[in-house]
Simulated assay, not measured.
Amino acid sequence: MPRYALLVEYDGRPFSGWQRQTDQPSVQGAIEAALAQLEPRAHTIAAAGRTDTGVHGRGQVAHCDMDKDWDAFRLSEALNYHLKPAPVAIRAAKRVADDWHARFSAMERRYLFRLLMRRAPETLETGQVWRVNHQLDVEAMRAGAEHLIGLHDFTTFRSVVCQAKSPVKTMDEIAITRVEGPAGPEIQFRLRARSFLHNQVRSIVGTLERVGAGSWAPEDVKTALKARDRAACGPVCPPQGLYLMGVGYPDDPFAQQP
Rank of each mutant, 00 (worst) to 15 (best):
D229G: 10
Q188K: 10
D229H: 15
T207K: 02
P121H: 08
R230C: 04
R228V: 00
A232D: 06
K226H: 13
N133D: 15
R119L: 10
P167S: 07
S195F: 05
V129T: 14
E173I: 07
K222P: 00
Q188H: 14
A217P: 02
Q163D: 11
A102M: 08
A217F: 14
G184V: 10
L112G: 10
H152E: 13
T170A: 12
W216K: 07
V161G: 00
K226G: 09
L197R: 03
M117H: 03
D153T: 09
E186R: 11
A227N: 10
I149N: 04
Q128L: 14
D172T: 12
M141A: 06
I149L: 13
S215H: 14
R118L: 09
A102Q: 02
A120N: 07
R228K: 13
I204T: 01
W216R: 09
L208T: 04
V160T: 15
T207V: 03
G181I: 01
V211F: 09
N199Y: 11
H134V: 13
S215D: 15
A120L: 12
I174N: 01
H198K: 11
L115G: 00
R142I: 02
A227E: 08
G127S: 06
G212I: 02
I176P: 03
A217T: 14
Q200I: 05
L115W: 00
I187W: 01
H147P: 00
C162Q: 05
I149D: 07
Q128T: 09
T170S: 12
C237M: 08
V168D: 04
F157N: 00
E209A: 15
E173A: 14
E173S: 14
M171I: 15
T170G: 07
T155C: 00
W130K: 06
A175R: 15
G206C: 03
Q188S: 04
R178P: 02
A217R: 15
Q163V: 09
K165C: 13
V179I: 15
R202M: 04
G150K: 11
